[in-house]
Simulated scan of single mutants.
Amino acid sequence: MNNTEGQWRKSSYSNAQSACVEVSPGGETATVGARDTKHEERGPELWVPSTSWTAFLRLVADHR
C-alpha cells in the first residue's frame, strides 16, 4: 500500500544520524503507515489499522 492521501511526518524523537521513523495517516482507509526515514520512498512500509496503531501508542506510553 502506498500513501497517496496523507503526508509523512517525521518523529519528534528523530536525530541527526538518520535514526528516524515517519508515520502517515492512510486517509479514508483507516490505516496508519510507518517507515524508516533513510529509505523513504524506496523502502518497506508497515501499514496497520488505525485502531492497532492507537493501541500500540498507548502501550508505549504506559511503559515509559
Results as ranks from 00 to 15, higher is better:
T54R: 14
S18H: 09
T37Q: 10
W53I: 05
V48R: 14
T37S: 15
S12H: 05
A55E: 12
G33E: 10
G26P: 03
T51L: 07
G33K: 11
P25G: 13
A16Y: 02
D36W: 14
G26K: 06
D36H: 15
T4A: 00
Y13T: 04
S18W: 05
W53T: 05
W47P: 09
K38R: 13
D62T: 11
A61Q: 11
T4G: 01
E41I: 10
A55D: 12
R35N: 10
R42C: 14
D62L: 06
R35F: 11
V60H: 07
C20G: 09
G27V: 04
E22R: 05
A19E: 15
S50F: 12
S11P: 02
V21K: 03
T37K: 11
D62Y: 06
V21W: 04
R58W: 04
S14G: 02
P44Q: 11
M1K: 02
M1N: 02
W8A: 03
E22W: 05
T31F: 03
S50V: 15
K38W: 07
E40H: 13
E28F: 08
E22H: 05
V23F: 10
S24R: 07
S50D: 14
S52A: 15
M1E: 06
A19I: 07
L57P: 01
S12Y: 04
N3F: 00
S18F: 07
